[in-house]
Amino acid sequence: MADEANRSAFMEIQGRMIDLTAKLKQVQNQMRNKEGEKKRAYLTLEELRQLSDDTNAYKSIGRTFVLEPKSFLVNEQEQKLKDSEASLASLQTSKEYLEKQLAEVENNLRELLQQDPGLARQIMSMAVM
């Protein structure tokens, strides 16, 4: 009876670990994408700042290009930069939370396996097959 309870507890912990790992990878991918957006906005902003203030430049909208004043484009890139930084801060918080949750689940799994060495042997024999 206790063996079956430990087995079901292991399955539950394993499912939670898989779920948390997937969420963590998703957050890391989102962070990587936001880093790219931030870098593009920064580089575009640096190039725009080299132009004189009365210059008009083309902005890409899909496959169309629209002529815009430099000040409008600079403001737009600065806003993209701020938004990316805010998103990165939020994603970093989520990442830290998920890492703590994952560490907690790993500790729960470790405690369960130390509590029932027979379960650990069963799992190892299933993994070998």
Rank of each mutant, 00 (worst) to 15 (best):
S87W: 01
D83C: 01
K38M: 10
L81W: 02
R49N: 08
A41L: 01
S87G: 08
F65Q: 04
N75H: 10
N56I: 09
A86C: 04
T64S: 14
R63Q: 09
N33P: 01
L51Q: 06
S84R: 00
L43Q: 13
K59M: 15
G36S: 13
E78M: 15
A57K: 12
R40Y: 08
G62N: 03
E76Q: 09
S60V: 12
V74L: 09
L45G: 11
N56C: 11
E46G: 11
E35D: 09
K70I: 04
T64L: 14
A86G: 06
S52Q: 13
E68I: 12
K38L: 06
E85V: 02
K59D: 08
A41S: 02
L73I: 01
K59N: 14
V66F: 04
S52E: 14
G62T: 02
I61P: 05
K70L: 13
V74E: 10
V66R: 08
K80M: 07
E68A: 10
Q77N: 13
S60E: 07
T44A: 11
D54A: 13
L81M: 13
K82N: 13
K59P: 05
R63V: 02
V74G: 08
E78I: 15
A86K: 13
T44R: 15
D83E: 08
I61R: 14
E35L: 00
Q50S: 06
E76M: 10
K34N: 06
A41T: 00
L67M: 14
E47I: 05
K80W: 04
V74Q: 03
G36W: 00
L81N: 01
V74R: 05
E47F: 04
Q79A: 13
Y42N: 06
L51A: 02
S52K: 11
Q77L: 12
L51I: 06
T44L: 12
A57P: 06
K80I: 03
E68V: 09
E68P: 08
F65G: 02
V74P: 08
I61L: 15
L43Y: 06
R49P: 07
S52V: 05
I61S: 04
D83N: 05
R63G: 15
L88V: 00
E35G: 00
S60M: 15
L48P: 09
N75A: 14
T44V: 09
N33R: 06
D53M: 11
N56M: 07
K59T: 08
E68S: 10
N56G: 13
F72S: 13
R49C: 10
E68W: 05
G62D: 03
T64Q: 12
L73M: 02
V74K: 05
L51R: 06
E47A: 15
E85F: 01
Q77S: 15
S71I: 10
I61C: 08
L48H: 05
Q50C: 05
D83F: 01
